[in-house]
Nucleic acid binder design. Structure first.
Length: 198
DNA sequence: CCATAGATCGGCT
DNA sequence: GCCGATCTATGGC
């Protein structure tokens, strides 16, 4: 196949997000997430439904989580541990209170910018955690509620990357509903453009 | 490589 | 007042 065909970019539309977070979370793996001049490929996600003690939406609408109850395809950014921001995409229908946490990725473009935002860290540590990913993409409270389906400079894009060997595991860093297998990840370095033996 | 402690503050009980 | 959808530095193997 030609490079051009493989790299054709299609925006991920709102209909993609308008279904259960349990479906969207694995489907987002391998997609490109662009914020301004930085693009990362999504390699790890987690699903959070309303009927889930570990979800911010579990106890109903509050000022913090209200974006989760809005329409799909909107960015939900929250602040935690007194210093970190984490980014989610709202899924389902309006009123559903669900989202997919973006836990990790790999920088595809904008490496110099990301490097400047993560001073002194190795490239491997740039985006291998939810707060690191948010930092690399400069996502914080100012971006909470931004529509990811309407502006060219922000959103998800599909370059037909084929994702295989998706792992499903319990989620990370939570104390409730620990056992739910709602974390999805794959090894992008092992199946990207630079094949390696093994 | 692995384990652990400390940072630091908004949201909610 | 407590706790968190975490990260980093540090110390040990």
């Amino acid at each position: 196949m030609s490079e051009a065909a493989a790299q054709q970019l299609k925006r991920v539309e709102r209909t993609f997000f308008s279904r259960s977070a349990l479906e969207v979370a694995p489907a987002l793996l391998g997609k490109l997430f662009t914020v301004g001049s930085v693009t990362i490929r999504v390699t790890e996600t987690e699903a959070y439904l309303q009927d889930d003690p570990a979800s911010h939406s579990y106890s109903g609408v509050t000022n913090r989580n209200r974006v989760m109850f809005g329409p799909a395809g909107i960015l939900y950014v929250y602040f935690t541990y007194g210093m970190h921001w984490c980014a989610n995409v709202v899924t389902g229908g309006a009123g559903d209170g669900q989202a997919v946490l973006l836990r990790a990725g790999l920088a595809e473009s904008g490496h110099e910018i990301v490097s400047a935002r993560r001073p002194g860290r190795q490239a491997r540590e740039w985006t291998n955690g939810p707060a690191k990913l948010a930092k690399a993409l400069d996502l914080d409270g100012r971006r909470n509620g931004v529509d990811l389906c309407s502006e060219d400079s922000v959103g998800f894009f599909d370059d037909n990357q084929v994702v295989v060997d998706v792992e499903v595991t319990p989620r990370i860093g939570i104390s409730k509903a620990k056992d739910l297998p709602q974390r999805f990840l794959y090894n992008a370095e092992q199946q990207g453009s630079s094949p390696k033996p093994g």
